[in-house]
Computed example of a mutant assay.
Amino acid sequence: MTTNQQMFLYAVEEMNFTRAAERAFVTQQCLSDHIRRLEKNYNVKLFDRTPKLKLTKAGEILYASLMEIQKIENHVEQTISESSKDVSGNIIFGIHVERTHLIFPTLFSAYHKEYPNVKVSLISDQTPRLMNLLENGQLDMMLGLDIPPQEGYAKEQVLEEPAFLFATEKFLRRYIPEWKSGQTWIAPEDLSRIPLSCTSYTCALTRHMGQFLTEHNVVVHYICEIGDYLTQLMLCRRHEVGFFCPESFLIEEDFIESQKGPAEERVRALKVQDMSSRIRVEMVYSSHHYLPGYAIAFKDMLKEQYQTRVDEIRRRYEEIVSEDA
């Protein structure tokens, strides 16, 4: 059962979105988003919200169907659980270096509970180097960014992730005197007026931004190349540079900490005006390499947990924007 469907069941059982969200350990807005995606997927309305929350006819049909599915899944899960703990094996998993801490700790805890005898070896690096390891048979699968099509490899898109410019208002006013307090976006041409840092010129995000800037005839000035986002954030908080960063960084404790203090000292996550393209987060594995059941379970669990984690991040960003408004 998908996360969207599980959230729907919580909402039906509680008939109150606030209580359902608390039960699911998510925000009410996050739960509502799951319901909306489900309604969009089936092209129906599942709840009447006035005068009080109740199921529509379509909602009743879906609820009855999901209860039957849940019974089947519970039976399957019980049957498998009797044997999954006896399964042993190894997974060598490559993950983009800046995504490791975002998803792996939670993922491993959940997976290890189901498959305690499967050893997971984690290799974190930039996408191009991970692809080389995959091609050489040194990885079973990997999570990477903006991977071009390659013969002999299967790709499954996890989601698409926008990029932001991180900068303080104090820094922006120094180079863009007309900058308006509380502005949530930056014009492409203004990017050429500020000094920037980047992770590496081969990094997927740097290449992605480079393509956008070339299309808009904008030349930017990278004054330093740093291997991680946390160090760049430290320079940013000193009002030395701005830097491009993926959406997933918004939930980092260091970024949350940078939201404290005077308004002009806080690090802003700014959207780049007219930038609609997003970075593709993708699972990749050899189409000629057999993936055992425990590896497929790991892959599917990762995709679901990544989506849930990003839903939390997007809620966090909306909260930041509303607080600054």
Rank of each mutant, 00 (worst) to 15 (best):
E68C: 00
R129F: 05
L172H: 02
S109K: 15
V87C: 00
L196N: 11
Y111Q: 11
V44K: 14
P162E: 10
E264C: 01
H289A: 09
M7G: 10
L130F: 09
C245S: 14
I103G: 02
Y306V: 09
E189D: 12
L55Y: 07
Q305F: 03
S181D: 09
N16R: 05
L233R: 11
P148W: 03
L46W: 01
R23D: 07
C30S: 14
T27W: 07
L270V: 02
E265H: 11
A325N: 13
H216W: 07
I296C: 02
L55I: 01
E22W: 08
I296L: 09
E82G: 03
T184I: 00
A110K: 15
H216P: 09
S286G: 12
K57N: 13
L172G: 03
K299I: 10
T214Y: 00
Y294N: 00
T214H: 08
V218N: 04
P162G: 07
I313Q: 05
E312F: 13
A297Q: 00
L38W: 02
A167P: 08
S81H: 14
L230R: 12
A297F: 07
R238G: 07
S322W: 10
T27E: 03
G210N: 05
E282Y: 02
S277P: 05
P51K: 06
T199M: 13
E257Y: 06
P177W: 03
G182C: 07
A20G: 12
R309K: 15
D274E: 14
D125C: 03
I320C: 00
G182M: 02
K71W: 01
E319N: 14
V87F: 06
E39V: 02
T308L: 05
T202N: 14
